[in-house]
Design a protein around this nucleic acid. Structure first.
Lengths: 200, 200
DNA sequence: CGTTAGTTTGACCAGTTGGTCAAATTATTA
DNA sequence: TAATAATTTGACCAACTGGTCAAACTAACG
């Protein structure tokens, strides 16, 4: 598909995606304008449309990238590993992504809040499947007595909710806690919570 | 302020706010248009601007209403009540609001994700103060040995995150769980989690 | 160095945006 | 019922929207 990408193409594609991420994450698809992305990326509007067919194409490129990054760590959970540690590893990974890539998290959040018009098929397809497998694994662990019996779906939701909260509601968290880094405390709380939920 | 509001004013003000809530919650402030709100409310665009000075005025009226509804249940927590039950009552109340008023939750979420440009002062003011008081109470309870020692801030964040998740990420939750009502299971999970976190 | 392929842009366009306003319509009240 | 106040609207506007395009410019390469 992308056999030969020139130096300039590579640079500009990523500059546009970086700018698009910044703008879309803040204003959502409809609230964002090509002029904003142009200003943010330092390119002219027609130049942006030379590299991406449309505003929507930029948005979809970002979403596609995001979804693979989102799903991979779930797939990386090792069924042969220690259950509590595996779940903890996943949760911590998710939290770290919230700290390092809060804009990606916000972009995803706005898309979902708006009804996920462009990725609903991924939600009911790939995401659902990946989650289904994870719930089976969790139930299997519970049956084997390795963790406490627990609703696997809501366990997963609680991990998502708590980790993404720190990225999506960053302003609110900072308004309450101040500007200093709070991710260390968050991780400790999350670990404590999960251990209590998973061990008998 | 609103001494005499005629029958028609009352009807149209609330029709516009209802329509605005629906539209703003889905598309955010910048992504929403007066034409959408007009269509949704059944009024003409100039007629809407007869009742509200601007698009922004509608949005701010909604946010103001929302914030008081948001803060009240925190204030209603009874310092003299049973700690675990009080916190549980609050969490369940929050979850119920997610079920009954998901659009309000989404409107708030989009505003926060976008950096809370219009309510940052409320966050660092009223909200912070109310949360501060709650953390003092929780610490007090912990000191008295009525609940386990716990980081009160992240406890609050976890309640917010988990309850609002079911409203804000409704599409995703439904993509995974199907269309049937999942709030009963969510409440059970939430209660289980909080009891485990709060009791020794 | 000259040619070609890749890149950038100013000018432009049709549709949409929030908002205005005078005039028409409807409700209220004396 | 007549006059007054409140409500509604069609026509309109300037600014902005995503997108186009031919022409100018720059990089790559034989």
């Amino acid at each position: 598909m992308k056999k030969t990408e020139t130096r300039i193409q590579k640079k500009n594609h990523s500059a546009i995606k970086a700018a698009g991420l910044k703008v879309f994450a803040q204003f959502g698809f409809r609230g964002s304008t090509l002029d904003q992305i142009a200003a943010e990326s330092g390119l002219s509007k027609p130049n942006i449309l030379y590299y991406f067919a449309s505003k929507e194409a930029i948005y979809e490129a970002l979403l596609a990238q995001l979804l693979t990054d989102w799903l991979q760590p779930v797939r990386d959970i090792d069924p042969a590993g220690d259950p509590v540690e595996e779940i903890l590893k996943y949760a911590k990974h998710k939290l770290k992504m919230s700290r390092l890539y809060p804009r990606e998290s916000r972009l995803y959040a706005t898309e979902i809040i708006q009804g996920a018009p462009r990725i609903k098929s991924v939600l009911t397809g790939e995401l659902r499947e990946v989650v289904e497998n994870l719930t089976l694994l969790i139930n299997h662990w519970a049956d084997a007595g390795l963790i406490r019996a627990i609703d696997p779906y809501h366990l997963i939701f609680s991990i998502w909710a708590m980790t993404q909260h720190y990225a999506d509601f960053d302003v609110q968290v900072k308004a309450i806690l101040g500007e200093r880094d709070h991710f260390e405390d968050a991780e400790q709380y999350l670990e404590d919570m999960l251990r209590r939920m998973l061990t008998v």
